[in-house]
Amino acid sequence: MTRKLVQALPPLAAFTVLLLLWEAGVRYGFLKPYQFPPVSRIARGFVELSTTGFPTGVSIWSHALTTILRVLQGYGAALALAIPLGLVIGALPVVDKLTAPLIVFCRSVATLSLLPLVIVWFGAGELTKVFLIGYGCFWVMLSNVIAGVRYVDPTLVRAARTFGLKGLELYRSVVLPAALPRIFAGARMALGVGFMVIVGAEMIGTIQGLGALIMEARTFYRSEITIIGMLVIGLIGFAISAGLMALERAMLPWAGDLDRVRR
């Protein structure tokens, strides 16, 4: 424990020095505060955001909650569709071959480039935002589920066949558990995509949400609020990802050290 603390000391010190230099740079006029808001300003901004709110009346917590709910809705819908669909496609090599180009294509389309089209479809309301998040998450999740099922070690399948397993039973008791680590990894990747899309998805038609906060702050040259928005998005993403990893560790105790193997 103390050893860990000692190890963390040098990078912590370096970070503090950087922040102090930054602060001094602004104070002595080398850096413009609206371009590089110093720590003190960010701290003050945070107090303002959590009390008065920005715009007035909408606190940072309310922004965060709105964003979390949007991400979870889009993400949840994407997972609910992608997992069963991927399990079916992955089980049928012919269907996989047929759909692979389409999936790669759809996954490669930058989600936000769909924004104008989605507004035409669903207007500028909640559905548009949730749809965009869902779209981004869906294709990443789908391709990971398919890959997880397709690339199960053939030796495991052979071993099961020597005991007379085949068809659906083989799939359920060997292919599915073998694919789970990849499916979990896909779920974590998809979550990352969800948070990447959120800022763009919240750019129009709302003043609520961290993405909207960031855009609104730009209009008023409140760069420190943009930075706070960034930090909060990062923290939320980190927390949910850590939660997913804990879930994974609880559900797949056999899969080994997740922290070190795939982050």
Binding site: D153, L156, A159, T162, F163, P177, A178, L252, W254
Partner: peptide
């Protein structure tokens, strides 16, 4: 398979999600 042949593969043919005893018990599935 299943005509009296038991097979031992090269390494990594155990089911990683099953404990040693469950891996062996897997053989009795059918």
């Amino acid at each position: 398979p299943g005509q009296g042949q038991g097979v031992v593969f090269q390494q990594h043919a155990l089911f990683p999600w099953l404990t040693a005893v469950d891996n062996v018990a897997f053989g009795f599935r059918k």
